[in-house]
């Protein structure tokens, strides 16, 4: 089992921390292997942020991600730039209020969440990344709920733990509901738009 993941958005959304939480969940709390890299180039300035994560049950040899199995986008730029790299049959996770989806490739599965709105309802816009982690966990099942939850706890300062756990639960619950009423995961021949489910 080897999965390549990319998470991208703009600076300040906590893109890197969300990859950090998932990597920690796999490598520390699940006993698997995770390697995280991030873009440090000039493209990482001016607002763009991107992290890549390779998770596996074997030691990770090749550290970089060029064609992810799972792509999480939290900005229009990230959507435009990285969606063409997604593997056929891959999973695209979208911050639906921040991304207008155009030219979505065939043969991928799309799952959307208004993560920023969830975060704002909790009173802190900045926890949108943890909402996204919860959603990711529910949708992909690449990382277990327990491991993810533990990784959230040890990645944030103690006084923000409750807030972040609420954010995680909201994202996770939304994801599970979406899966329950949405089309089955095997049905990957059509792009699945779930935009209406959140409005």
């Amino acid at each position: 089992m080897l999965k390549e993941i990319r998470i991208a958005g703009f600076g300040g959304q906590g893109v890197i921390l969300s990859a950090h939480i998932l990597g920690r969940a796999v490598s520390i709390h699940e006993g698997g292997f995770a390697t995280m890299t991030q873009n440090y180039g000039p493209e990482a300035r001016g607002g763009a942020a991107s992290a890549a994560l390779v998770i596996s049950d074997q030691p990770v040899l090749f550290p970089y991600v060029s064609n992810p199995d799972i792509l999480v986008v939290m900005s229009q730029e990230a959507f435009t730039r990285y969606t063409p790299e997604l593997k056929e049959g891959g999973v695209l996770i979208v911050e639906e209020d921040l991304v207008r989806m155009e030219n979505v490739p065939q043969h991928i599965k799309v799952y959307s969440i208004p993560a920023t709105r969830f975060a704002e309802e909790l009173g802190k816009k900045m926890v949108l990344n943890v909402v996204m982690v919860g959603f990711f966990c529910a949708i992909t099942e690449a990382v277990s709920y327990d491991a993810c939850r533990k990784a959230v706890i040890d990645s944030v300062p103690e006084k923000f733990q409750k807030l972040n756990l609420d954010a995680f639960e909201n994202g996770y619950g939304f994801g599970k509901n979406l899966l329950a009423k949405g089309p089955s995961k095997e049905e990957d021949t059509e792009p699945v738009s779930v935009l209406e489910s959140a409005s």
Partner: peptide
């Protein structure tokens, strides 16, 4: 090297 230095692992 930059890859090992900036790579995050357990």
């Amino acid at each position: 090297d930059e890859c090992v230095g900036h790579m995050t692992e357990k």
